[in-house]
Amino acid sequence: MPEYKTITAVIKPALERKLTLGESVLLDECAESGLSREAVFGKMKKQFDVMKKAAEDASAPGVEGPLYFGDAYKIKQGIEKGIIPNDMTARAVQIAVAVNGWNSLSGKVVATPTGGSCGILPGVIISAQKEWGYDDDKAVMAIFAGAGMGIPIAYNGTLSGSVGGCQAECGSAAAMAAAALTDLRGGTPEMCAHAFAIACKASMGLICDPIGTVSCPCVKRNGMFAAVAISAAYMALSGVESIIPPDEMLTAFCSVSLDVAKKFNKLEYKVGVQCTPFACSLDPKLFRH
């Protein structure tokens, strides 16, 4: 079982075996865990079901919290009324906001890679299913591709907003989702690596500055980074390559993440939107986990 410490280490086994990235990551996971293909695939599928249920439940009218005001329902209405297009990106934004809004209300979700960023990959993948008619098995296979590509970030950087800023959460999720969508659309493992590297560029330096327990600005950032993931995948699928080699991009991404979070450390003082007069006027209890 190869250790996925670099982007090259993730895609190389796929290239050598002439497999899609998702299939290759699934096989490596089976070898590593000693579990059957059915068990490993079934576990991911069960998680995908939780994502879909969260997307559905959170899109209903009346889903609200102290700092979440039914945004997913509003965007859904926007699509249904034709105010915004019923397309891949708009639906992905809607689903990402729904799933992360659900998370902010302590609902059941799947950490992807974290709670604060759990809407992005479901938004992109579920929307792609509607756009191109992929069944759940295809969608789940693509999620393996995204998950595999996230592992080098965990090895070389962090996935914790407290340690690496929002970049570590939403930035990582967008890079994973970009790779997943590229795999789903039939992109090669190299294209997945480029989609990942391109998406990384969008979140470099993004700080973690939540008001309340992971809701503002997290929920909206989930929506916006779903769009980032789609943009990156579209570029890579069209043959656009990251000028910076993906592994060098990974190093830069992880290094900026840790540096920026040292300067903007939300545990030591207020940062970003936490400093706004509006945020300061709120009950301090909202700032705590």
């Binding site: 902010s104 799947v110 950490a111 709670g115």
Partner: peptide
């Protein structure tokens, strides 16, 4: 490191560090 560290676990919101972890 396994894929289910990146996608998973199934958890309650809002923060994976403060619920799942």
């Amino acid at each position: 490191m396994r894929v289910f560290e990146l996608v998973g676990p199934i958890m309650f919101g809002p923060s994976s560090s403060h619920t799942a972890g």
